[in-house]
């Protein structure tokens, strides 16, 4: 594990990269403990984090998906078979049965930090 900042007793935060390292409207893969996390920065500057695991293909690839919107909802599309996920909730918008894990994420002093799920 890399450097962690403890802000609340129940949750560990892991700084994964600088906010400026995130290209607007794209994702980046990060390792948080043993979890693979996809961190996204949207057009409006907001930051989101989902599990990088694509439940359809079972490959760790969601960070490489195209970031966009559907009916105003910020989304990422799996690069494998293009299922679209809501960046806020992890819900798959093409299959109501499927949801990916959402991680808490925040920006502190120009660093992007991901919390344990």
């Amino acid at each position: 594990m890399t450097s962690g900042t403890v802000t609340a007793p129940a949750r560990t935060w892991t700084a994964v990269c600088g906010y400026d390292d995130l290209v607007p409207e794209s994702g980046a893969p990060a390792l948080v403990g043993t979890d693979q996390v996809a961190v996204f920065r949207t057009h409006d500057g907001a930051v989101y984090a989902l599990s990088n695991h694509d439940p359809f293909s079972t490959a760790s690839v969601l960070s490489r998906g195209i970031v966009g919107s559907r009916d105003g909802v910020p989304t990422v599309a799996s690069p494998m078979h293009k299922q679209v996920f809501d960046l806020r909730t992890g819900a798959c918008l093409d299959d109501p049965e499927v949801r990916v894990t959402v991680y808490p994420v925040r920006v502190r002093a120009g660093r992007v930090e991901v919390g344990s799920a």
Partner: peptide, 21 residues
Amino acid sequence: GEQATLQDTNDRFLANIQRNG
């Protein structure tokens, strides 16, 4: 620049994605 974020993963990584990523 911004064009990188428009590309499907194959163009983004200039290679062809396979089933295991």
